[in-house]
Design a protein around this nucleic acid. Structure first.
Lengths: 196, 196
DNA sequence: CCTACCGATCGGTAGG
DNA sequence: CCTACCGATCGGTAGG
């Protein structure tokens, strides 16, 4: 997921997409109005429609941009010649960095996907389910290779994905802790637990 | 948090509150209309206003019912004469049970609180922040008592709260795993990690 | 508890 | 890119 730089690199469409992500995160998709978005962009509401197809198209682009970023990173890790534990750690760290670097988009994809229209809604859920399945496969591999404890891989994946997702709270009231420290602490907690 | 039983125990107000929780979870607060709620209850929309103050009041009651349930359980654990690890485990298990037994309300409190109006919005956030602070205190106690590893207690609490919250996904596609097994697996993962 | 209805706001279009 | 505007829907009220 490339970061959009302000300036001549960013087309009007890019600006609209980025402002939409911020607005949808702040107010939720349904509460955010096209008039507010237009104001954030600096035009009148009808002018937006020279660049975009409609409100729901904006949500689609955000959700699938995020989903595709995660899917393609998972492709990468599956081709790595590393231990299962190392690959799971890579994925956890990627999730953490995505949350920190693309906060608005990831937040919107996590919270507002239910407002996608068909067939996008179904496609999104299928893609997410596939992602989870492949992650569960990685956990199962690690269990079979005796790198992980004998545990329910489904619950483990659920726990990991939920924990990294929770970084959205951290993002909101930035604490006096570096993102590197945060990453290490969370990875350690998830892989090794907290009890001695 | 008492479960509302159908039948003569449930007043019309209770029915409205319960249907509102389901509707707000399914469609989000902003997308859910009072006309839909009325239809779920079995009356015309204006009739709702004989029992409730307005749409936002419904959200307030859901959010604070949930927040108060968590706060009062935390009061209980703070008076327990048990190890820090045992008390943290109790809290994790309580979160899991709340999510399973009061799914709609907990989901709505987690996702839709941002649509609360002032001063409720501020009160809710203050209460949640206070809850987190007290939980961090428990973690710090456990670290000082050498029950937990030397870890950042803020990150640990964030990880735990996020993980249990993620059960909303499990709830949606119920797996072939008992809730007891789920509870044990997740507690183990969070307290002891997954690597050998 | 209903019918009738209000003002506000919504996403989006027409036309230039 | 704008002004002008449309039909739909919203939360909620009046009155009985």
């Amino acid at each position: 997921m490339a970061k959009i730089k302000p300036g001549k690199n960013a087309s009007k469409k890019d600006v609209i997409n980025q402002k939409a992500a911020v607005l949808f995160r702040e107010k939720g998709f349904s509460s955010a109005s096209m008039r507010e978005l237009a104001e954030a962009v600096g035009v009148e509401a009808p002018s937006l429609y020279n660049h975009i197809g409609g409100k729901s198209e904006l949500l689609q682009e955000i959700c699938f941009k995020v989903a595709n970023a995660f899917t393609s990173y998972l492709d990468t890790t599956e081709n790595m010649e590393e231990s299962f534990a190392a690959r799971v750690e890579h994925i956890i760290r990627f999730h953490i960095r995505m949350m920190l670097d693309h906060f608005d988009e990831v937040y919107v994809a996590n919270h507002e996907w239910k407002h996608l229209k068909e067939p996008y809604l179904s496609n999104f859920l299928i893609q997410r389910r596939g992602y989870e399945k492949r992650l569960i496969g990685l956990l199962e591999g690690g269990i079979a290779a005796k790198e992980f404890k004998q545990t329910n891989p489904y619950v483990a994946v659920l726990t990991i994905l939920s924990a990294v997702r929770g970084l959205e709270f951290w993002q909101q009231h930035k604490k006096n802790i570096s993102s590197r420290e945060l990453e290490d602490d969370m990875v350690n907690h998830l892989l090794k637990g907290i009890t001695k």
